[in-house]
């Protein structure tokens, strides 16, 4: 694990990369997304695990995204994701629709190193009609006919999330949000922002170990204080609902979104240590 300035972490994502991001309620790398905008990221393929929020809407609005694979894009109580909706209407964004457990399943297949995994449900949904990469087989273990969906594995080029802390050994602490371990296991390269670096080794602490992702999966870490803002970070800080509402309002128009970028994103607030 190397410890980098935030801007250098963002610079590791090349144009065209597939980047997996958690939703707003699960340690979203919001400051990292703002750093990607500042770095001029281009043609990204964002994967919502399993849905997408503020970070994805921001990156779409800033012109960093060519494709989104996700089960939904939402700002939660602040409503619809305005830049996503505008890009879909304009036809400037390719969207691959999924359903939440299908994305989890694709990543679980990748973490096991198998080419696909089955999933119940979905048959009869138009999502399936638009997913030539998903296949229906007849369950080979059933006594009678039993159609079953197969989901191919997804190993994203990158995953990024915001953890509470990293230790000196490069392990990162995500608390109860252990679904992030699946993303980390499945992605080829994992970049993590953290509130702080702590001394020692979290995996040697019995109480912390279960909420810790082994540093073997983590390529690099950058410190970004309040890096999940305006989303919440576990019990560290709550969501800034008023800011999300303001974002949702401003991002309804291209001009308003430009104002938001100029105010909250483009000036590098130099949060990174």
């Amino acid at each position: 694990m190397s410890k980098l300035p935030l801007a250098d972490l963002a610079a590791r994502i090349p144009a065209g990369a597939m980047l997996a991001l958690p939703p707003d309620n699960s340690l979203t790398a919001a400051e990292f997304a703002r750093a990607l905008v500042r770095a001029g990221a281009r043609d990204l393929h964002l994967l919502g695990v399993p849905v997408s929020g503020y970070a994805t809407d921001l990156l779409i609005g800033a012109g960093c995204v060519a494709r989104v694979t996700t089960s939904a894009v939402t700002l939660g109580e602040a409503g619809l994701a305005p830049r996503f909706a505008a890009a879909v209407r304009a036809g400037t964004l390719a969207v691959t629709d999924a359903t939440c457990p299908a994305i989890h399943t694709a990543l679980q297949a990748a973490e096991k190193g198998v080419p696909f995994m089955p999933l119940r449900g979905v048959i009869g949904s138009d999502i399936l009609a638009h997913r030539p990469d998903w296949k229906i087989i007849d369950n080979p273990f059933a006594d009678g006919p039993d159609p079953l969906l197969l989901i191919p594995a997804i190993a994203p080029d990158f995953a990024a999330f915001h953890a509470v802390c990293a230790d000196e050994a490069g392990n990162v602490y995500v608390g109860r949000r252990r679904e992030l371990a699946t993303i980390a296991h499945a992605a080829r390269r994992v970049l993590v922002t953290v509130e702080r670096i702590v001394p020692g080794n979290l995996l040697e602490d019995e109480r912390m170990a279960a909420g810790t992702i082994n540093g073997v999966y983590v390529e690099a870490v950058a410190v970004a204080a309040r890096g999940a803002w305006p989303s919440a970070l576990l019990d560290e800080y709550p969501a800034d609902a008023a800011h999300l509402m303001d974002y949702a309002k401003l991002a309804r128009s291209a001009d308003g979104f430009a104002t938001y970028l100029a105010t909250h994103v483009l000036p590098d607030t130099a949060r990174a240590a």
Partner: peptide
């Protein structure tokens, strides 16, 4: 329908997306 209206994937009005509905409704 949590996807949208008009041409796929919601060129007239785009809703947020299907979330887990395509699975949960069956399960």
């Amino acid at each position: 329908n949590l996807l949208g209206t008009g041409e796929w994937p919601g060129r007239t009005v785009r809703f947020p997306g299907s979330f887990g509905s395509a699975f949960m409704y069956f399960m």
